[in-house]
């Protein structure tokens, strides 16, 4: 078995998701190479080489791979894929954008969002918003897979830098797509997907202004701030804060749901959290059925009190 992991980048740096994907690759077994593709990504390549379990880091550093657009990246992967039995990426917006394109170019299926490895060809993945778990087997010669990072604990960093780093000199053409701009939310808080604590607000927050009530608690706990789809749909907060089937999937140590009723599609994004706290004025809200600790009451009274007590 030989596995190629497409590294996730965040503003040019190696994103935390990659260490989880390497863990999934270890569960499959075999040699693990990591592909770092982008522009000015030497530091990311060095970070990838420190991940335990990685045999080799391959670096495609060229302007055509900047911003990891799907067209050039999938064309690059097509060139490299013949050396491998598996190509893995995290189920990030980059992985989800690029890997199905690669799979179709290689005339194979893609397995999305795996959460467990049964064997080198058999995997578990959630379907129907996580309300069922499917076990699927792929008989394709090349397995193209996206990995739900919450399903695999990140590999540690060896620090030895034992993996070799080599340049990939494949440069593809791309006249079809070009980057125009990126507007990334600037935040000192941890990234939603990797945060140990997440505090999310729902429709019960009333408006976007009230989300500030979560700030103080998030600051004290080092938490990321999320939102339910209802809060996003109502225009309170941007979509990149959405936790749920159609947003981010999170599984922190502590998840605090504030003013969130607990629709199926929200639960799909957070029910694997270790400890769930629900704060809601409706004691019949479905969120209480999955919460370890529920507190019924007015969030506008509870939040300031919580902030001062922790």
């Amino acid at each position: 078995m030989s596995i190629l992991v497409l590294a996730d980048l965040h503003e040019g740096q190696l994103a935390g998701a990659t260490a989880h994907v390497v863990a999934a690759a270890e569960a499959i077994g075999g040699d693990i190479d990591v592909l770092v593709a982008g522009e000015g990504v030497q530091a990311a390549a060095e970070a990838a080489a420190k991940l335990n379990g990685v045999t080799k880091v391959r670096v495609a550093d060229n302007v055509v791979y900047a911003h990891q657009l799907a067209e050039p990246l999938s064309a690059l992967l097509v060139e490299l894929a013949d050396d491998y039995t598996h190509v893995l990426a995290s189920a990030s917006t980059t992985g989800k954008n690029v890997l199905p394109r690669l799979a179709a170019l290689k005339d194979v299926s893609q397995l999305s969002d795996i959460i467990a490895v049964d064997s080198a060809d058999t995997f578990k993945r959630p379907i129907y918003a996580g309300n069922a778990i499917a076990t699927v087997k792929s008989d394709d010669a090349l397995k193209v897979i996206t990995v739900r990072t919450t399903g695999f604990d990140a590999v540690s960093e060896g620090g030895s830098g034992s993996a070799s780093i080599e340049a990939v000199d494949v440069v593809v053409e791309n006249s079809q797509s070009s980057f125009v701009k990126e507007e990334l939310a600037q935040s000192d808080r941890p990234e939603l997907g990797g945060a140990k604590v997440v505090i999310s607000g729902g429709r019960g927050m009333g408006n976007g202004e009230n989300f500030k009530l979560l700030d103080g608690i998030a600051d004290k706990l080092g938490a990321a701030i999320g939102a339910s789809r209802a809060a996003v749909d109502a225009g309170f907060v941007p979509n990149d804060m959405q936790v749920g089937q159609t947003g981010k999937i999170v599984a922190p140590e502590l998840y605090i749901a504030v003013g969130i009723s607990g629709a199926i599609q929200h639960l799909a994004g957070m029910k694997d959290s270790k400890v769930i706290v629900a704060i809601n004025k409706d004691d019949e809200a479905p969120i209480f059925q999955v919460a370890d600790y529920g507190l019924v009451g007015d969030l506008f009274e509870i939040l300031p009190e919580l902030e001062s007590n922790i």
């Binding site: 778990i133 076990t135 699927v136 008989d139 394709d140 529920g294």
Partner: peptide, 18 residues
């Protein structure tokens, strides 16, 4: 070439306390 071997319900999360 992908076969669906099995479909299961996810592990139920038990509600806790208020």
């Amino acid at each position: 070439k992908v076969s669906l071997l099995k479909v299961e319900s996810p592990a139920e999360r038990k509600g806790g306390i208020k």
